[in-house]
């Protein structure tokens, strides 16, 4: 069981490597983020970035593509279609990579918990290193979360990307359950016009029915 524990394995690895702690310092002091503006959380990022709260003093900055980024911000609710793109973006990012979920929607669906296109639990599909509660979190909460994440990186706890690699089967199963469905969830729809009838056929059909 202890061998399966990724955190312990990571700690052991870092102890063996003389540069381990030092490397963590550089990683935590320079987090470049890719913000995936899916929902309302994106509006809280400009005040966090600009002069009032200025996240650049922590070494964080926005990056243009997933290839360059370390940190994926999921800022709000995720529809199924968006989830697919998020997974693509996450898998394009280079290790080490971290995910932060903004607000209650990525945690449990938030106010969209009973909506048909919105997923409820982000951590079932990609590993989430840090979640910020709130609807939406204020910039103070965001900065606080980033500082906590920096602490976890320093301690070697933010190892979501290793978990994703090791338990890929489990994540893939959940992704397929939502994205790659082959049968209806509640009750399949029998399209009465599946054969694409023309107007004349439909008119003839209706006349025939009324005659009967």
């Amino acid at each position: 069981m202890e061998m399966d524990n990724l955190y312990l394995a990571n700690l052991r690895e870092e102890k063996q490597n003389m540069w381990g702690g030092l490397v963590n310092y550089f990683r935590k002091r320079s987090m470049w983020m890719l913000y995936y503006c899916t929902g309302c959380g994106a509006i809280e990022l400009p005040p966090t970035m600009t002069s009032r709260y200025d996240m650049e003093r922590l070494g964080m900055g926005p990056m243009a593509t997933p290839r360059q980024a370390d940190l994926l911000l999921i800022t709000g609710y995720l529809s199924v279609k968006t989830l697919k793109r998020v997974i693509w973006s996450y898998e394009q990012m280079q290790e080490p990579k971290y995910v932060v979920g903004f607000g209650s929607c990525p945690i449990n669906g938030g106010i969209y918990w009973d909506a048909y296109p919105v997923i409820n639990h982000l951590e079932a599909f990609i590993p989430v290193d840090m979640s910020i509660a709130g609807c939406m979190p204020r910039p103070q909460a965001i900065i606080d979360a980033f500082e906590k994440l920096m602490g976890e990186i320093q301690e070697g706890k933010a190892i979501g990307y290793k978990r994703y690699e090791k338990h890929y089967d489990w994540y893939k199963k959940n992704q397929d359950a939502v994205l790659g469905r082959t049968e209806a969830v509640l009750k399949p729809w029998n399209d009465p016009f599946a054969s694409n009838p023309s107007v004349d056929e439909l008119m003839a059909l209706e006349k025939g029915e009324s005659n009967v």
């Binding site: 490397v23 550089f26 990683r27 002091r29 320079s30 600009t50 002069s51 200025d54 650049e56 003093r57 922590l58 070494g59 370390d70 280079q94 290790e95 080490p96």
Partner: peptide
Amino acid sequence: ARIQRRMGPPFYQSFIDVIKCFTKT
């Protein structure tokens, strides 16, 4: 950053960025 009335990163931030880049895959 100072022109934009921000604190800005420390002056050695670029060194940190480059070293971090070299520790990534």
